Simulated assay, not measured.
Amino acid sequence: MSKLRVNAFTLSLDGHGAGPGQTLEHPLGVGGENLHKWMVGTRTFRTMVLGQDGGTTDTNETFAARSFENVGAWILGRNMFGPIRGEWPDDKWKGWWGDNPPYHVPVFVLTHHKRAPITMEGGTTFHFITDGIHSALEQARSAAGDKDVRVGGGVDTIRQYLQEKLIDEMHLAVAPVLLGRGENLFAGLDMLKLGYRCTEQVATTLATHVTIGRA
Rank of each mutant, 00 (worst) to 15 (best):
W96A: 11
N184E: 14
V105R: 13
G154I: 04
P176E: 00
D156R: 13
P117L: 12
L166W: 06
R150V: 13
S135H: 07
N184P: 07
P83G: 08
G86L: 11
G132Y: 05
P89S: 11
P102W: 04
G122V: 09
V107L: 03
A173V: 01
M170W: 03
T119G: 08
K94E: 14
S142E: 14
G154K: 04
E169W: 12
S142W: 08
A136M: 08
N79Y: 04
D91G: 10
E169P: 02
G122M: 08
K92N: 10
A187M: 13
K92V: 14
F126Y: 15
F128C: 08
D148T: 08
P106W: 07
Q163T: 12
Q139W: 02
K92I: 10
D131C: 03
V71H: 04
A144V: 00
L185V: 09
E121K: 14
E121Y: 06
L110D: 00
L162W: 01
G122Y: 11
K114G: 01
D131T: 15
R141K: 15
D90V: 07
A116G: 08
L172G: 00
G180Y: 00
G123E: 10
G132W: 02
V105F: 02
K92A: 13
K165W: 11
F186M: 14
V174G: 03
A187W: 06
L137G: 07
F186V: 12
N79Q: 14
